[in-house]
C-alpha cells in the first residue's frame, strides 16, 4: 500500500495481504449482491424483501469502504479519510432527509397518497 502523501511503498504491508483484503471484499460484495437478488426473487412478504435488500446494500457499502477504500478508525491517513466519508454521509443525510421532509409534506397537500396515485394510473383521465 502506498504511504499517504509520499508515493512511497509502505514496507509493513505486503502485496499478499493486499490481495487477500481485496479478494475478501470482492467475494463478500458478490455474495451480498446475489443475496439481494435472491431476496427479490423469493416469495417472502414485500416488507421482508425490502428490509433484506436494504441490509445487504448497507453491508456492501461498508465492505467497499473497508476492503477497497481502506477506511478504518486507526492510522492518521485512514482516519482523515474516514472523517471525509462521515462528512459526506452528513451531507447525503441532509439531502435525502430534506427531500423526504419536503416531498412528503407536498404530497400530503397535493392529495397524492398512494391510493390516488394508483387510481390515477388505472384511470388516466380522472381529472
Amino acid at each position: 500500500m502506498i504511504k499517504p502523501n509520499t508515493g512511497e511503498l509502505d514496507p509493513q504491508e505486503s502485496a499478499a495481504s493486499e490481495i487477500k483484503s481485496y479478494t475478501t471484499g470482492f467475494i463478500a460484495s458478490l455474495l451480498l449482491t446475489v443475496g439481494g437478488f435472491a431476496a427479490a426473487l423469493s416469495d417472502l412478504p414485500t416488507t421482508w424483501k425490502v428490509v433484506l435488500i436494504c441490509v445487504a446494500a448497507l453491508l456492501q457499502i461498508i465492505t467497499h469502504m473497508r476492503n477497497f477504500l481502506h477506511l478504518s478508525f486507526s492510522g492518521g491517513q485512514s482516519r482523515e479519510d474516514l472523517l471525509l466519508v462521515l462528512f459526506s454521509a452528513i451531507l447525503l443525510t441532509i439531502m435525502a432527509g430534506g427531500t423526504w421532509y419536503i416531498m412528503s409534506d407536498l404530497s400530503g397537500r397535493m392529495h397524492q397518497t398512494m391510493d390516488s396515485v394508483a387510481s390515477a394510473q388505472s384511470q388516466p383521465h380522472s381529472r
Binding site: M95, T99, I102, M103, S107, M110, Q121
Partner: peptide, 14 residues
Amino acid sequence: AGGNMMNYANIFWM
C-alpha cells in the same frame, strides 16, 4: 402517470 414535477424543483435547488 404518477409524475411529480415538484421533485425537479427540489433536486434542482439542492
